[in-house]
């Protein structure tokens, strides 16, 4: 038996989406997103569940899920900080922001704090180069970053 099933809301969304695509396979990415919002990450059980729903093998789902960097194949912290490291952000001080975050959170880039509160990742250009440096905090962008801004945000989330 699968440990994962869609919530009734996601199931309804899934059925509505079926109407909008020519073939079921197009629902792979939308379904992975629904799983990730439901569970915070994408487990093997969830992939097996999706394979059944989309008439393909679990390996097909894994192959797609692992191709796209935004799908978490292991749990991440409650607050996922994704700092842009690409050129325009580097020119505007992203390296300094990165060091500051590592020090402040006591973890290295790519790690999660022991209490599962924060994950720090480096990502490539977020499309906010004009308001660099930039990061995304869960689903929200924080732009024109400064050390003070970072302190305010992290202190706020810690307390």
């Amino acid at each position: 038996m699968n440990a994962f099933t869609f919530t009734p809301e996601n199931e309804a969304k899934f059925l509505a989406l079926l109407e909008r695509y020519l073939q079921k396979s197009s629902l792979t990415l939308p379904s992975l997103w629904m799983v990730q919002y439901q569970e915070g990450w994408i487990s093997t059980e969830a992939m097996k569940y999706l394979a059944q729903k989309l008439d393909c093998s679990p390996m097909d789902i894994y192959s797609v899920a692992s191709f796209y960097t935004m799908f978490n194949l292991k749990p991440v912290g409650k607050y996922h900080i994704q700092l842009c490291k690409t050129l325009s952000c580097m020119l505007r001080g992203s390296e300094q922001m990165s060091h500051h975050l590592e020090k402040k959170l006591g973890i290295k880039v790519g790690e999660t704090t022991k209490d599962m509160k924060f994950t720090l990742t480096h990502v490539e250009c977020l499309g906010s180069c004009g308001t660099a440096p930039c990061m995304s905090l869960n689903d929200d962008y924080v732009e024109n970053l400064t050390l003070e801004k970072l302190d305010d945000i992290i202190d706020g989330l810690k307390s």
Binding site: R20, L29, P30, F67, Y68, T69, F71, C125
Partner: peptide, 12 residues
């Protein structure tokens, strides 16, 4: 005409 928005998964 129908319009459907489709989200990618972070791949340049």
């Amino acid at each position: 005409l129908h319009v459907t928005l489709h989200r990618g998964g972070g791949a340049y």
